[in-house]
Each structure stands twice: as C-alpha cells, then as structure tokens.
Write a protein that binds this DNA or RNA. Structure first.
Lengths: 254, 254
DNA sequence: CGGGTGCTTGATACCGATCAACCCACGTGG
DNA sequence: CCACGTGGGTTGATCGGTATCAAGCACCCG
C-alpha cells in the first residue's frame, strides 16, 4: 500500500522540469539538507505544478522530523494537516479496545496522506506513527482548501494523490481476500524488484524492517517468516534485507 | 464500503437547497422517471454545487440502466467514465487466474466510482457488475478533467467523493484484519440500523441479498449465515431481510 | 561480555473456506 | 392441482491457513 522508493524519481523530477527555480521557493522550509531539497522538489505531489501554484503551496509548508516510534497523530484527534513523506516510513494503524492493532497503510518517500480529511469530517480515523527516523512536509488543510478554489493544479494534485491511495487500498483488499501469505509476499517481491541482466533473476533490498512488511501485508511477523521459508523452495534467497529471486517466472505461478 | 440508503437524503437535498431549479437542468437526461429526478438532484456528489457548475456537469451526463448481473466494465478495459449510482447496487470485484473472485467494494444509491482513473492510468483495475436492476449516471472522464480546471466546485465534489471511498476502503481493511465474522456483522448492523423508541432495540432491513453482504464483508455466504446464527444468542432476530436487535448495547461488546 | 532487538522455529488452537446435502419459496408447465 | 426446476439460504463435516504463545537464535552496541 505504498509507492516504490523515490530516490531516483526525485532527481529525475529535478532535471525534467528545471525545478531548480523551485528550490528557491524552499526558503521558508527551514533546516532542509541539500539532498532533502531535491527530495522535496521531486515529490510526485508537487511535480508538474505551475510556479504560482507551487509558490502559494509552499508558502505555509512546514518540515517536520520524527524519531522512530514517534506518533504523528492519533485516532479521534482533530485533523489539521496534510502530509507528504520526504524520507523514511510511517505506518497507519487502528487499535481495537482489546489492544490488538492492525496496520492499514504504509507510507514511504513520495506518498501523501491526510487529504481525505479535507472535506470529510474533522477527526482522524487512524493512528499514524513513524516506523523509523522520518522527514515529512506538512500543509495546513485550511490553506489547501483555499488553494483548491484558486489553483486547479493543487486540486489536480490532491485528486491524483487520493486516487493513488484509493487504488492501493482496493488492491490491498483484493490481495487480502484472494491470496495466501506466500502469494502476497511473492507478489510484493515481483512488483518491487528490479530485474537483473537477462530478466530471469531479480534482486531487491527491503526498504524497511520485515515486521513492517508483515503489517503491510496483513500478516503476523511469524507468518511472514514462514512465507519466506516456503518461497525458499521456489528459488527465493533471503539474507537480512536482501532478497534474490532465481527465476521470476516460477514465482509468477503463485 | 458504501453509503446508507438515500431515499431520505435525496428528498432532503431537494428541499434544503431549493434544487428544484436543478430539476430543469435534467432535460438532457432522458428517460428519467419522476422519482429518479429527485434521486439525481439529491446525489451527494451534486449537492451544494453552484448552478453554472451543475449546468456544465450535467450537459454531457448520461443515464444508464443495467439488468441484474450485467457487467458495466471489466478489468483491463479503457476507463472512459465516472459513475454515480441513482438506484440499486453494484459490486466491484477482482478475479484471479484460478477463477476465484472477491468483492472489493459495494456501491449503492449516492455512491460514486471510477474517479480514481481521472489522472491515474487508463485501465480499469476491477470488474464492476450490477447486483440487481440498477440506474446510474455516467460522466465522461475527459469532460470532468476539463471542468476541474474551470469549476472548483467540481474539483471539490471529486475530492469529497474520493475521500469517502478511501475512508471506506481503509475502514474495510481495518475491519478485515481486526474483526471476526460475527463482529463484522454486528458492526454492520449497528452502523446501518435506526434505533427504536427508547434507543435500546433497533431494526433494519437489508437493502440487498445476504450473499452481497457476505461479499462486502469479505465472507463466504455460509460464513455470514453462521455469523447470524451466532448473533442469535445475542438477541439478533433475522427473518429474510428483516433484522431486529433486542439490545444494541449487548451487541457493541462484540 | 551481557542485554537489547529483530527474526526464526515449533506446537497448538481457532477461524473461516470449501464441498456437499438439504430446505424453502417461488414460478412454470403439464 | 401437482411435479418439477431454480435460486437463495441454511446446516453439517472437513481441511487448510494463519494467529497466538513460547522458546530459541543471530546480531548489534554499549
């Protein structure tokens, strides 16, 4: 339920749109390290936006850093901001009254969240917590609401980002209901790995801890572990965060 | 994953906003029966929209009727329209290559779908099928894309509706992962029934077949049946589509 | 070297899918 | 009027998948 790592896309956006002008707009965004500037200007949410729209948007934007396990907001709180992830990962989860909790979405670099509260109720529906050290950009919902009336580019960006999240969520529902644990893991690997040389084998590095992946896939950590060991028989080699697939074709047959 | 029945809200909207003017705009919408006119003008998607925006929006709108089991579109097809449900229910589902299929969302009167394809890829991600005789309004995606640049009201309506769907979907994920079958059914009943007199007991009528509810809750029909019979011990009486809860408080304790 | 933390492995229990049979309401045609 | 078929729903028996609990393992860092 989240986009691939954006290290590459970030720089690409910078080149493509001559967004070095955009970098100048980042004055108000304090404490940005050089590599973060390119990460912010390359955010899919901001990509392809007109200069006036960008300027208005960034005028009140605010950078926040969270430590691992720090909670950004909790269910029931008033929703006041919309967020874009610059680096790191956050998990959205819900806890029932017995204390059991389940992840509902995982956000990584380039992902946005919180825009569903623009016109739909004022209270958060989930908790959101940093899974690791994280940098995010926060936009005031009030400000965005105003801009939607002035800058169609902003409206389009919000719609695009909401749509992405909705498609991810529905995909997640379908996968939860149709696939077993090993199938879900295989599917995740195949959609996130880069194919090697001849396109037969493939390799990837998990961008976060396995327990996070487990939550994202709706599994207990133990179940993920067992799924990996099942996939071992299908030519999947896991060492730490490194995953190697010997034959991608074999994996695609569940 | 869908809104409550809109018979009431439809008429309410008509009164509240003096949308009888809107009814005049419905000329181009052929073959609308009187009661459907009020259902269309009362669609949440159109509610609170300025007259110019409404006029442009409805200019190319088109009413469609589907028979039970008729397929509106299938996974992989080019997405060209955005839809609002006037009456009846549709199910969005995905089928894997073994032929097993799972519902991902259920759309009823007042719900919208298809707007996630506005700026995110051109191919449908799911099949959508009428569960019963259905009336829907179709808007051209191209036309909506243009209007988003001209009429902020349209952009807002799209954002609102996408947000609703996203919140429903995330809710669905959380419930799937946290609740057992009887809990899901109890939750559904409690969020869809109207409380009786003293607020202790409650009654409702299912707006569709039980097998549809099963799909919406991610259950096999047999599992739904068993869940109902479990709830019988908690004072839930089911006869056909009629459901009566003797003590809502008891149900809330799972 | 001791003590976290993240991950794996094993044993068990439970929930829900699946397959199969049956029931019931309804409609149709002989 | 009854025989029959059909579709939606229920009930029972079984099986498989995953959560859960518990223990053990590997690694990192002080």
């Amino acid at each position: 339920v989240q986009a691939p790592d954006l290290a590459a896309e970030g720089k690409m956006g910078l080149q493509m749109h001559g967004n070095n002008e955009t970098a100048i707009l980042l004055g108000p965004l304090l404490k940005l390290e050089p590599r973060e500037v390119s990460a912010v200007t390359g955010l899919p949410f901001l990509l392809g936006m007109s200069q006036p729209a960008l300027r208005k948007l960034l005028a009140t934007a605010e950078v926040r850093r969270l430590d691992a396990k720090e909670v950004l907001f909790s269910e029931g709180q008033a929703a006041e901001h919309f967020f874009c992830v610059v680096s790191g990962h956050l998990r959205a989860y819900r806890t029932d009254r017995d204390g059991r909790s389940a992840d509902v979405m995982l956000f990584g670099p380039g992902d946005c969240f919180g825009h569903c509260m623009l016109f739909n109720g004022a209270k958060q529906q989930f908790d959101v917590q940093a899974a690791e050290r994280v940098t995010i950009v926060a936009f005031s919902l009030d400000h965005i609401r105003k801009l939607i009336g002035e800058e169609p580019d902003v409206a389009r960006a919000v719609i695009r980002s909401l749509s992405t999240n909705l498609l991810n969520a529905t995909d997640c529902i379908a996968n939860d209901r149709l696939q077993t644990a090993p199938q879900r893991v295989a599917h995740y690997i195949l959609t996130h790995c880069r194919k090697d040389d001849a396109g037969k084998s493939a390799t990837m590095r998990l961008p976060f801890q396995k327990s996070l992946l487990a939550g994202k896939l709706g599994l207990a950590p133990e179940a993920l572990s067992r799924a990996f060991s099942t996939l071992k028989d299908n030519g999947v080699i896991v060492r730490g965060r490194l995953i190697h697939v010997e034959n991608t074709g074999a994996l695609e047959n569940l």
